[in-house]
Write a protein that binds this DNA or RNA. Structure first.
Length: 291
DNA sequence: CACTTGACCTGTCCGC
DNA sequence: TGCGGACAGGTCAAGT
């Protein structure tokens, strides 16, 4: 589910809501979703205060005031939803979020705070996880060690992208964009969108891309991710932000889930097909494979 | 090593 | 309505 813009939206929401709160309890019963031993988690977590919520790539990092950190990967269907109270739900209160009463059957973890508010980690497909680890260990986990640069940092220039893409010069561009060790945070939606904007066929070999195309792709990746953050991310089916609300980026998408509709640039009917196991959307006229 | 495929899960949608 | 199959935004491990 969530890619960089969705994770960024959740993080911004949680960072406004959580810092300063003290954890008074935590409950989880799906070992896959929280692999630490329950007694360790309770011992190290209960009584500590939330210091800061941030992210790296698609991983959410919740720093505690102790030497511990809670990290979460939402994978396809994970949600982190904060609730100040359940008592208004089901009654149609105008400020209610779009989810119903929590916990529900996909709730994997519940964190309780001192002011009676709660954080729910919901994950229908159980691909996601939450882990508690010493803060000093966070940069050492495999995922972070191999992770590529943050595409929205101003230091990430087109030459960086070029150099990293060339490590996979015989591969098609789309799976390379999805590879988190090349660039962090791009997923299926924003790969399709940035390739459409750059008029690049997703199966094009990296070594067939001109420097100008890579320059264009670099700037379009930044543009697409920034616009989506501005719109609160993409809600296709599962995604909700920290307050349980949807994102509206898909209303502004040009190609993702737009198969059967005319391309806004040239009017050609856009198509969807499977590429390396992923649903892939293109304008068949403007995105041609360069041989 | 570079590259591709399948597995991990559950829910939903579509065609018969 | 029921049933089987395909599909879903992400990563890994295992295969070639």
């Amino acid at each position: 589910m969530p890619e960089l813009p969705e994770v960024e939206t959740i993080v911004r929401g949680l960072d406004k809501l959580l810092p300063g709160k003290t954890i008074t309890g935590i409950d989880f019963n799906t070992p896959k979703s929280f692999p630490n031993a329950e007694e360790d988690v309770k011992k190290f977590l209960v009584g500590s205060k939330i210091a800061k919520v941030k992210r790296r790539g698609k991983v959410i990092i919740i720093d505690l005031s102790t030497d511990y950190t809670l990290i979460t990967h939402l994978k396809m269907t994970g949600q982190l939803i904060y609730r100040s109270s359940n008592k208004n739900f089901g009654g149609g209160h105008p400020t209610d979020s779009l989810v119903g009463k929590l916990p529900d059957r996909s709730t994997r973890v519940v964190v309780d705070f001192n002011d009676k508010t709660q954080l729910f980690f919901n994950d229908q497909r159980k691909f996601g996880w939450m882990r508690l680890l010493p803060t000093i260990e966070v940069p050492n986990i495999d995922f972070f060690k191999k992770l590529g640069p943050e595409p929205l940092e101003s230091s990430f220039n087109w030459q960086d992208l070029d150099k990293r893409l060339q490590r996979r010069k015989n591969s098609s561009i789309k799976p390379v964009l999805l590879d988190q060790t090349i660039v962090a945070g791009i997923g299926n939606i924003y790969a399709d969108e940035s390739l459409w904007m750059s008029k690049i066929h997703p199966a094009t070999q990296v070594n067939r891309l001109t420097k100008n195309k890579i320059k264009e792709l670099h700037s379009n990746i930044k543009a697409v991710l920034s616009l989506s953050i501005e719109k609160g991310g993409s809600t296709d089916r599962n995604y909700l932000n920290a307050e349980g609300k949807k994102g509206s980026y898909l209303e502004f998408a040009n190609v993702f889930r737009k198969d059967g509709q005319p391309c806004v640039r040239c009017g050609t009917i856009m198509i969807k097909f499977k590429l390396f196991g992923r649903g892939t959307h293109i304008c068949p006229k403007e995105q041609k494979i360069v041989i």
